[in-house]
Simulated assay, not measured.
Amino acid sequence: MESTSLLKNDERIDQLYSQDVQIIQSPRCFAFSLDAVLLADFVRPNHRHKLRTVDLCAGNGAIGLFLHKKLGGTFIEVELQPRIADMARRSVELNQLADRYQVLNMDIADVFTAIPKDSVDVVLCNPPYFPVTAQSRKNPNHYLAIARHEIATNLETVAEQMSGLLKMNGHGYLVHRPDRLTEILKMMEEHRLIPKRLRFIHPKPGRDANMLLLEVIKDGKPGGLKVVPPLTVSGADGQYLPAVRELLYGQL
């Protein structure tokens, strides 16, 4: 099937050249951004044939698809919004990965109706970053508001479902905002997810971190958190620095 026949009116195909993956995107309702690429890069390689990976709040499936060479086994992408879940399904088809990937259009709160507890090796999540308060300025675009604000899910639900899915010593990976780090660490430990590796992402030299990447292990040994070297995205001129260019385009 030609790739153009998989597209709907307002959609385009973007490519992550470093992983040779094509993703169906729509600027009107959802498009993956650098946080998805960075989270996929942060995941430890594991080529076990029977590995089971679940991507919660999967959006158009970008993070899971970026990992098709790095992780073995099968993937389940869980996305609440029907239009975006449909884009994920077509992206799987576009990359000819339907034998390894399944997309579930459902609320992550209901995930145990489809995936047994304690059955998953790796859980990924790029959740909504912003809590909803009386002062929240939510995006007027409904798709984007749900993706960015804790309207349909929240950090506690993410921690609870990640923990419930993972086998003992399974690995969870999260991308989030540094201003919520204290809350994130507390919530993870309350749900038996022991933080093991943390990386801060800085937009430019001399700027505060605006993103964090966290790896947790279910029922892991307490303590031992490593804060690995930070990553700076762009130079003072706004151009991507070499390490980030390589993540996007491969070795140039």
Rank of each mutant, 00 (worst) to 15 (best):
K117V: 04
V120W: 00
V120R: 03
D121R: 10
V122N: 05
V123G: 06
L124F: 02
P128C: 10
Y129T: 09
P131M: 12
P131F: 09
V132N: 07
T133G: 11
T133H: 04
A134K: 14
A134G: 06
A134I: 05
A134P: 05
Q135G: 06
Q135L: 12
Q135K: 14
S136E: 12
S136W: 09
K138F: 04
Y143T: 03
A145E: 13
I146S: 04
R148C: 07
E150F: 07
E150I: 09
I151A: 07
A152R: 11
T153G: 09
E156S: 10
T157Y: 00
V158E: 02
V158Y: 01
Q161N: 06
M162V: 08
S163I: 02
S163V: 02
L165S: 08
L166Q: 03
K167F: 04
K167A: 06
K167V: 14
N169S: 12
G172F: 03
Y173H: 00
Y173N: 01
Y173F: 06
L174A: 02
L174T: 01
V175D: 03
V175Y: 01
V175H: 04
H176Q: 07
R177L: 15
D179P: 14
D179Q: 15
L181H: 08
T182Y: 11
T182K: 13
E183A: 14
L185C: 07
L185Y: 04
L185S: 07
K186T: 13
M187S: 14
M188G: 13
M188S: 13
E189N: 05
E189L: 04
E189C: 08
E189H: 04
H191D: 02
R192F: 08
R192T: 05
P195M: 02
P195Q: 01
P195D: 01
P195Y: 00
P195H: 00
K196Q: 15
K196D: 14
R197P: 13
R197K: 15
R199P: 12
R199W: 10
R199Y: 09
I201A: 12
H202Q: 14
P203L: 11
P203E: 09
